[in-house]
Design a protein around this nucleic acid. Structure first.
Length: 586
RNA sequence: GACUCCGUAGUUCAAUGGAUAGAACGAAAGCCUUCUAAGCUUUAGAUCUAGGUUCGAUUCCUAGCGGGGUCACCA
């Protein structure tokens, strides 16, 4: 059964966040239209320096059409266009026509908007009416859950949130590798080398070790591989009751361990798919598949021959009749669309499987199943000691990283808050660790290999998750102080009071947020949002050091408090999208 | 070999084809009787090479060099 994601009907019908930034750009576009110029809002950009203006039109794009130099165009336009609405002044600098905004007006609009929209600020409706399934995580049972899996989860869950923020109905799907060669190897090892007493309390850890030990044993003796092959055959046949019992038992160990990790990471899936089930579905498809010209027998195996599409061949069934991953992915892809009525299917999968997924998509296309399926690739996580490999045991597990980070953060927190209870220190530290881990995985574009360095991951200053939480704690601290001092947050606000460059920069940041969310979703790249929100925090911290809030004159103080509230809202909204926790103090 | 991803400060990363290539860590120097110093300010420091397209190239194209990955029975 699919558990539908929480969806408030009332909300989906109301107008979500008005993008003021876009509104301003549209206004400029229509201002230019009066002078016969066709400008799209996206042609307008932000000047590199605040003194130059707030929004800029590069006149190079008009040069050819108008048969004038861009400098001349900017100069002439600056003379004839009259400021109006949000625009208070227009000037030309070189080949750029720069617009200055009426900040009091813009500030009032944006701060009022954020106050009204709260956690809805930044949402858009570009995906409304569309249903997308995002498959991510996809761990193999009977193996350890390592730090590389964490990258996938952070990316996948952030994409789920981003698509929801764009109005899509999202089904978050997990696909668990609970059958296959790796499972057979572990079961074989357990049957031959393990006594009940050898199994420790941490079942997940035990299975991980069993897997790498099995590999060692198998490498030493090719004859043992025949035994594994035979186990896989029995497993797929499903008739050996003792074997099936052991499989189910160990499978549950893994699934329990995974669920614990998902809970810790705050991850929820709407639906779980299993390879063991898709394997059966794949076999049902076999008669149909074998009728296809491109699916044939070769060297005893059943393959899909995709040579003519320059995609090589994909083995579906081994020579011994056991099945491979491709046979399972085909029925699953179809099921996603037919059963769940989705419009779009996303696969958050390691870049190394990009050729494989092209093969799967091509096979489906050749079967007449042409749908909107997209592989969202990301580069893997490697260790200083080389590529992560369960086979060679070169693995850093999620738990190892979490524990090391926890020790460090707890120590740090104890030093800072001697008066806090053990319980509070643990609670806060857990969130800091989670923030560090998640932000660390998301902050860099997914096409970059992350060389995982535990020291790097434990860092809590700079471009890190804890920096964001710390900033939020500071924001909270001011608001808390305002509250205890009984500062009234009502009455007329003088938005003109927010006149310094850094305050204007913060206003610009708040304005940009909805566009950033949309861009991150369209590009399937949460790093865009991560980088943005870090910049906002930097700007706030600069503001924090430059300008007092509580000690400012009462009118200025009120305006600044409202700015702070809005900044906090945008920060918290961003953290929520990135799947990160929020802390009031740290 | 074919295909593919990546080459930017000492290191890890940014930059829809646009104005002076930005951050973080590390290095050097400052800032806590003042809203949390897990912070802020300042200094030094970079586009692999050669062509091409363009008014303009870190970005696009071609070739080369360097590194990673994939390419029939792991997922």
């Amino acid at each position: 059964m699919v558990r539908e994601p929480h969806h408030d009907k009332k909300k989906s019908f109301r107008l979500i966040t008005m993008d003021i930034n876009l509104k301003i750009k549209n206004e400029i576009a229509s201002l230019l239209k009066k002078h016969g110029l066709k400008i799209k809002p996206q042609d307008l950009r932000e000047p590199p320096q605040a003194e130059m203006g707030d929004i800029s039109l590069p006149c190079f794009i008009l040069s050819k059409e108008m048969k004038k130099s861009p400098e001349k165009i900017a100069e002439d336009l600056a003379k004839v266009i009259k400021p109006s609405g949000f625009i208070i002044n227009i000037k030309n600098i070189g080949s750029y026509l720069n617009f200055l905004l009426d900040y009091a007006k813009v500030t009032e609009m944006i701060l009022t908007e954020i106050k009204k929209e709260r956690s809805d600020y930044g949402l858009n409706k570009t995906g409304s009416g569309q249903k997308v399934m995002i498959e991510y995580s996809q761990p193999n049972t009977h193996k350890e859950f390592h730090i590389g899996h964490v990258r996938n989860i952070c990316l996948g869950s952030a994409l789920v949130n981003l698509y929801q923020a764009s109005g899509y109905k999202v089904i978050a799907a997990n696909y668990l590798g609970d059958i296959g060669a790796h499972v057979a190897k572990v079961l074989w090892y357990m049957l031959n080398y393990v006594n009940e007493a050898d199994i420790g309390p941490d079942k997940g850890e035990f299975l991980g070790q069993a897997y790498s030990r099995a590999i060692v044993e198998l490498n030493s003796d090719p004859e043992k591989q025949v035994q594994v092959q035979e186990i896989l055959q029995r497993l797929e046949a499903g008739k050996d009751r003792d074997l099936m019992f052991l499989w189910k038992q160990t499978r549950d160990w893994s699934l329990d361990a995974f669920n614990e990790i998902y809970d810790e990471l705050g991850i929820k899936f709407n639906v779980d798919f299993f390879e063991s089930i898709e394997e059966k579905e794949g076999r049902k498809l076999l008669p149909m598949l074998l009728k296809q010209d491109f699916i044939k027998e070769s060297q005893g195996a059943i393959i899909a021959d995709l040579e003519e599409y320059k995609l090589g061949v994909l083995v579906l069934l081994r020579g011994d009749g056991t099945s491979l991953y491709g046979l399972k992915d085909i029925p699953l892809a179809i099921k996603k669309f037919k059963k769940y009525k989705i419009d779009k299917s996303l696969y958050i999968v390691d870049n190394r499987q990009s050729q494989y997924l092209k093969q799967i998509f091509k096979i489906l296309e050749l079967l007449g199943f042409k749908k909107d399926m997209l592989h969202v690739p990301y580069e893997f996580v490697e260790l200083k000691s080389g590529i992560i490999s369960s086979r060679t045991g070169n693995v850093v597990t999620y738990e190892e990283v979490r524990d090391a980070a926890m020790t460090k953060v707890v120590n740090e927190t104890k030093i800072r808050h001697v008066d806090w209870s053990e319980e509070k220190i643990n609670e806060v530290s857990k969130k800091i660790v989670l923030a560090a881990l998640k932000f660390g995985m998301i902050k860099q574009a997914s096409d970059k290999i992350i060389t995982f360095d535990i020291e790097e991951a434990l860092k809590i200053d700079g471009f890190t998750g804890p920096y964001l939480l710390y900033t939020n704690a500071r924001l909270n601290s001011i608001l808390k102080k305002a509250e205890t001092e009984g500062i009234k947050l009502t009455g007329k606000t003088d938005y003109k009071a927010l006149e310094s460059n850094i305050e204007k920069q913060l206003i610009k940041d708040l304005l940009a947020y909805p566009q950033i969310v949309l861009e991150a979703q369209i590009k399937n790249d949460p790093a865009i949002l991560a980088q943005f929100i870090h910049r906002v925090c930097q700007n706030f911290n600069t503001f924090y050091h430059e300008l007092p809030v509580m000690k400012a004159e009462s009118e200025i103080r009120l305006a600044r408090i409202i700015l702070i509230k809005a900044t906090k809202q945008v920060l918290e909204n961003s953290l929520a999208v990135l799947g990160m926790p929020i802390l009031k103090e740290m």
